[in-house]
Design a protein around this nucleic acid. Sequence first.
DNA 1: TTATTGATTGACGTTTACGTAAACGTAATA
DNA 2: TATTACGTTTACGTAAACGTCAATCAATAA
Lengths: 134, 134
Amino acid sequence: MNKEVNFKTYTISELAKAFDVTPRALRLYEESGILGPKREGNRRIYFERDRVRLRLLLRGKRLGYSLAEIKELFDVYDSNSGEEGQLRLLLENMEDKKKKLEIQKVDVEAALQEIERITKKARKALREIAAAKK
Amino acid sequence: MNKEVNFKTYTISELAKAFDVTPRALRLYEESGILGPKREGNRRIYFERDRVRLRLLLRGKRLGYSLAEIKELFDVYDSNSGEEGQLRLLLENMEDKKKKLEIQKVDVEAALQEIERITKKARKALREIAAAKK
DNA sequence: TTATTGATTGACGTTTACGTAAACGTAATA
DNA sequence: TATTACGTTTACGTAAACGTCAATCAATAA
């Protein structure tokens, strides 16, 4: 019921600061076809939609996806016509991503366990040093 | 009890094939100070130790670490003198890595859930198409 | 003995994801 | 009105992680 709430906008540097990236990066993401801010004259003006996409983009990056892969994902999702072929394509795509993510999950788990192992060993060694000191 | 079992060796291309990387990559990992194969004359000769390190290296890569970060991890671990300062440093380092991994875990979980959501939606749409076809 | 096979060391090329600087426009502020 | 702050495009630079030759050597198979 309130335009100022529903249509909050951001300048490039505001959005950059909010997500701890540089304006340069945001321009690059736009050039890569992932973000598409409106213009107010010359200036870029970002809406909530851009925030959402940026958040997903950054998560994708943390997961190790390239900008090209991320764009592809958005494209597949955006361009979904609801037509059968498209839907099957999307499902196939999702299946692929899922497999990769399951592998990642295992990798993360394994790394955490290894850290746990090393940490315990180190703590034990420290306790022994402390005991010897006395 | 058997030398041939305990000291199985690999040529560069054997190891490369086994891990689905190129020889070029293995040479790079060596240049980066992560692998350190022995030499037999001129030829590189890889032992089990290298296999282990390579496996960890590749997992690190899948998790998004750079070669420099991976080398650093190995260094911290290898060079552990058991001296108190070193141990504390190692623990601190492990704590950092752990935090990052926990974030990754959340990211992976979130991505998987999103995939689940999209997949369900797509399947539903497909069912509706199938129903309408009849 | 002569190919062939596999390895070696350069060294230059390539892609990705930005950083950085130049040259300029615009709007508010002193 | 001059300065400051923030934005724009254009373009060159850069670090990482290899790919891709080229030239060379060594052992082995034919």
